[in-house]
Design a protein around this nucleic acid. Structure first.
Length: 153
DNA sequence: GCCAACGTTGGC
DNA sequence: GCCAACGTTGGC
């Protein structure tokens, strides 16, 4: 059974266009430093799962692409790179704390904005719309996934 | 830049 | 284990 996810990226870091320009339109999802989000990648994501590529912390936050999980979870190398903003001095190479998955963009979409999502009655329980929601990776219910694809048609 | 909400840290 | 302080997220 395939699962669905919403994954936030700051377009100033990695935009959907950046991802599309990468080889195979695939990027390593570096920088997740939250245990709940990590656990989703480690325990629940499977290759082929659907991903909503979401731009956050920007002028026009919203869903901007359809993607899929393209690898299993493996060690995020940036945690050991002292030059990286994602460096974690407390993480030991023999017991890495942080993981990543690879994400492949399948197609860019129009920007289905946060306001659009909020305005849709069928999406009221979408996790990213919850007050105070900050998780960079959230599961998406199949009916929400279907509805969002419908809105993007 | 502001600020609400949340997660993590660390003293006790 | 509690909880205050602190840092971060992210929309506005």
């Amino acid at each position: 059974m395939k699962n669905y996810w919403l994954m936030k990226s700051e377009p100033s870091e990695v935009s959907v266009d950046d991802a599309l320009a990468a080889p195979q339109a695939t990027v390593a999802w570096t920088g997740v430093r939250n245990y709940q989000a990590r656990n989703f990648m480690r325990d629940a994501m499977r290759v082929g799962d659907g991903v909503l590529f979401y731009h956050s912390s920007c002028a026009a936050p919203g869903v901007v692409g359809i993607a899929q999980v393209a690898s299993g979870a493996y060690t995020d190398p940036t945690q050991f790179d002292a030059q990286s903003p994602y460096f974690d001095a407390a993480s030991q190479p023999e017991a890495p704390r942080w993981l990543l998955v690879e994400v492949q963009v399948l197609r860019k979409t129009r920007n289905l904005s946060l306001a659009d999502l909020r305005a849709d009655a069928a999406l009221q329980d979408l996790l990213v719309l919850k007050k105070g929601s900050r998780l960079s990776i959230t599961p998406v219910e199949p009916q929400h996934w279907q509805r969002i694809l419908q809105l993007l048609e």
